[in-house]
Design a protein around this nucleic acid. Structure first.
Length: 806
DNA sequence: AGCACGCCGACT
DNA sequence: GTCGGCGTGCTC
């Protein structure tokens, strides 16, 4: 028997499986999709691999090596996921091994280590240092911490002489958590008798015996009983010794907990619009028809309730459901809502989990112990079987696209899985991506619209404030008088306020008033951002930081001015101008710690603060009935980005954040401060008119030949030297020119928007095409070439349908 | 990554 | 004539 194995060798990736011989010992147990350990290369060093196929013949039976080990008894990838991995790898020009690694919990990624084994101990007599290293052991770890690197040449010589050998070890980090449990093994009468014989002072033993008389006959965790019956470990140990009970370690799941307990909830009554959308989705679930719905509903229109009832429908059909939500910000809130409806039948998967929690949630799904999965992007690979429904909430969110290899889009993966399972796919958003909305236009997707808020509330009234005017009349560039007045008005009414600005840190950057010098990052071509709380200038691209200078480094002047304002500075200004307001600041800096997002939001929900001030992470999903005012301090920062999606992003962000206002029975108001009051993205966001925006933006995309009229691919080249990176870019561009279709458009090569990041210089190439099979094939071969170029220090990144043009 | 092969210069 | 420098290429 022979197995096809995709091996995990860092830096030597290939999509080609290697054939291994299956020793007869494993021939029964080995199944496709399992992890194995195989010898690889001249030194037969051991690496992890995934079995993608098993066959009983091979065309090269002589030179094959044996599989060394099977990692676990169950396959970690089923046939669906194996097929999906191949598709994801090919579609995104990635390697299958890296797809396997993204599909599986982190702990399944092998860690490799080396050991030194002593073969001929007597040969070391004249080498005291080596003897000391082994110190009577015959195997020691071989790494920097353990072995003095100056000994390495000697060790290599000894290895040649077969006095010692270097062994490779594959460490499996997937560990199951065990807790101690026990159960009674004697009769109730026996315990009764023992109890009567106890001396009166043996209180704890007496308590244990009373417990045992009425305890269940199954294993119960030791810890729980000790706590509720005030016992201790010693008593149980003693009881075990006397043969009263047996103890054994029991497998236990690490289930992620929310900061506060989840209350149960019941389905809400749907209004007419919701009902119509729900029926369409529910009927499709019953019919097991592969269909994609685009649920376009204004903010607050009750999309989540439709999702929950649709999930219930899938469950009632005996099927499972997968729901994707954007990364962490709103995950706790959404997880809470789903768990409140489906309880323990829900597994969650997002980046906030520890490795152990993630592994255990994955196993609960794998073992079909849960039927509902809620999670961020990578949850789209959850090993659910018999999927009836996949939901992607806020489908326009850019976090659904992974910005490292494999650069997959969760929407594409979801579509593939929906096809595979004949499942219903629901894409929901108040502001769908143009791609999705255009597909609905062409009837590829079925459009369902919700035009009204679920609670009959009105959409908030929106006012655009021209900051050029505000400044002309002597105002500052952070708060217009209109906004200050509105904030004060809500404070007196005990109502809450959400303020968004798109910039973390304190000030944007420093400028010397004498010479115009701005401190820049030493690794990247960007200005450093002032962070006042830690008194440092910080690079938001690589994390480099330095102290805030008091004198200009260029001319020595002390006249340094801070330009622009970040969340820190605005929070400070706010406490000066409106001292009575209690403010919660929410940005990457205050939410870095695990669970802090949930904590901050819970505090705001309990009205422990009046104002929630944050970056765009607060724009999405928040649902607080008492928020009646939303202020956008700089509505246009995202507009000036050099990206064809800048208008779309701005429109989505403004619409989303506006939707935070007036979700309860009190009317909401939105104030947008901008220097571009007439821009269509801002004007149409003010009117909350998605359809008008869609039509206007589509016309521009058509004129400029961009998505969704054309497909795009971006190729990036990075090298420490600028001319090397340019050379690679031009070489590849010239090669591609001769291959691509006549109608395909190639832009560049040009330097990246930020030419240097983390000391690497970037060049890029943007390709726009409609149908170009040759191009796709060429790029498939380019990833092989990329492996060779990597050795010369050149990194090639191929990004299909890129979301960021950097 | 890591190991072998191979082709060239410095040395016993 | 041999040892060892690291450039190149392959790994079932």
């Amino acid at each position: 028997m022979y197995a096809q194995v995709i091996v995990d060798v860092p830096t030597m990736q290939t999509n080609q499986p290697y054939t291994y011989h299956i020793p007869s010992l494993f021939s029964e147990a080995l199944i496709r999709g399992m992890r194995v350990v195989v010898p690889f290369g001249k030194g037969n060093r051991l690496v992890q691999g995934f079995v993608t196929d098993i066959s009983d013949t091979t065309d090269q039976p002589d030179k094959l090596k044996d599989i060394s080990q099977i990692v676990e008894l169950e396959p970690v990838l089923n046939d669906e996921l194996l097929q999906l991995a191949t598709w994801v790898a090919d579609y995104n020009f990635a390697f299958r091994i890296s797809v396997f690694q993204t599909m599986l919990p982190n702990v399944m990624r092998a860690r490799y280590s080396k050991v030194l084994r002593l073969i001929e101990p007597n040969e070391l007599n004249h080498l005291p240092q080596i003897q000391a290293l082994f110190a009577d052991r015959d195997e020691v770890p071989f790494d920097v911490d353990n072995v003095d690197m100056t000994l390495v040449p000697t060790l290599l010589k000894l290895q040649k002489k077969r006095i010692i050998e270097i062994g490779y070890v594959v460490n499996n980090r997937a560990k199951v958590k065990k807790i101690n449990a026990f159960k009674p093994i004697k009769s109730v009468d026996f315990y009764q008798e023992q109890r009567q014989q106890l001396r009166p002072s043996a209180v704890k033993q007496a308590r244990l015996l009373s417990y045992l008389m009425q305890s269940p006959q199954t294993f119960v965790p030791v810890k729980e009983v000790i706590k509720s019956y005030q016992l201790d470990y010693a008593v149980l140990k003693q009881a075990e010794g006397k043969g009263w009970i047996v103890q054994k370690p029991l497998e236990s799941y690490r289930i992620p907990k929310l900061s506060t307990p989840v209350k149960n909830s019941q389905p809400l009554t749907l209004n007419a619009e919701q009902q119509e959308a729900y029926i369409a989705i529910a009927n499709n679930i019953s019919e097991n028809d592969t269909k994609t719905f685009l649920l376009e509903g204004v903010t607050g229109s009750g999309k989540t309730e439709i999702y929950l009832q649709a999930i219930a429908k899938a469950l009632s059909e005996g099927q499972t459901a997968l729901m994707l939500v954007p990364e962490i910000t709103l995950t706790p809130q959404m997880v809470r809502r789903v768990k409140s409806r489906f309880g323990d039948d829900v597994a969650v998967m997002h980046s906030g989990l520890s490795d152990g929690e993630r592994y255990d949630e994955w196993r609960r799904i794998q073992r079909s112990e849960v039927h509902v999965v809620v999670g961020a992007r990578s949850a789209v690979f959850a090993p659910l079987k018999n999927i009836g429904l996949i939901i992607i909430d806020e489908e326009h969110e850019s976090s659904y696209k992974q910005d490292e290899n494999p650069r997959y889009h969760a929407r594409d993966v979801a579509q593939w899985r929906a096809n595979f399972h004949h499942a219903t796919l629901v894409l929901g958003s108040a502001t769908p991506s143009l791609e999705s909305r255009a597909r609905a236009q062409k009837n590829v997707y079925h459009l369902l619209t919700l035009e009204h808020r679920a609670t009959n509330g009105m959409l908030p009234e929106t006012q655009v404030v021209d900051m050029r005017e505000a400044i002309k009349h002597g105002g500052d560039d952070i708060f217009s008088p209109q906004l200050i007045e509105a904030i004060q008005n809500r404070l007196t009414k005990q109502e809450q306020i959400v303020l968004m600005l798109n910039r973390r840190g304190y000030a944007n950057f420093l400028v010397c008033r004498e010479c115009g010098f701005t401190p820049r990052c030493i690794n990247c071509d960007v200005a450093l951002t002032v962070h006042k709380d830690i008194s440092r200038l910080v690079c938001h691209y690589c994390g480099y930081s330095e102290t805030i200078p008091t004198k200009c480094k260029n001319c020595g002047s002390t006249r340094i001015r801070q330009f622009g304002s970040g969340t820190q500075k605005v929070a400070e200004q706010l406490s000066e101008q409106i001292p009575q307001a209690r403010v919660i600041r929410m940005d990457v800096d205050t939410t870095r710690r695990k669970g802090s997002t949930d904590q901050l939001l819970t505090a705001f929900g309990n009205h422990e603060a009046d104002i929630l001030l944050g970056t765009q992470m607060i724009a999405k999903g928040l649902d607080f009935a008492n928020v009646t005012l939303v202020g956008v301090l700089n509505a246009d920062t995202t507009l000036s980005l050099p990206d064809f999606r800048a208008s779309e992003r701005t429109f989505q962000l403004l619409t989303q954040v506006s939707g935070r206002a007036g979700r309860g029975d009190k009317p909401g108001k939105v104030i947008m401060q901008t220097f571009n009051p007439d821009h269509y993205a801002i004007q149409l966001a003010r009117q909350q008119d998605y359809e008008a925006f869609y039509h206007q933006e589509m016309a521009l995309r058509h004129a400029w030949k961009y998505t969704p009229y054309y497909f795009t691919i971006q190729i990036k080249f990075a090298h420490e030297k600028i001319d090397e990176s340019a050379k690679a870019a031009y070489e590849i561009a010239n090669w591609l020119k001769n291959i691509i279709d006549n109608e395909t458009i190639m832009l560049g090569p040009a330097t990246g928007t930020i030419p240097r990041i983390k000391n690497k210089y970037y060049y890029r190439l943007v390709i726009k095409y409609r149908h170009d099979e040759k191009l796709i094939q060429a790029l498939g071969s380019l990833i092989k070439k990329g492996q060779q170029l990597q050795k010369q220090g050149i990194t090639i990144i191929i990004d299909r349908e890129p979301i960021n043009f950097m």
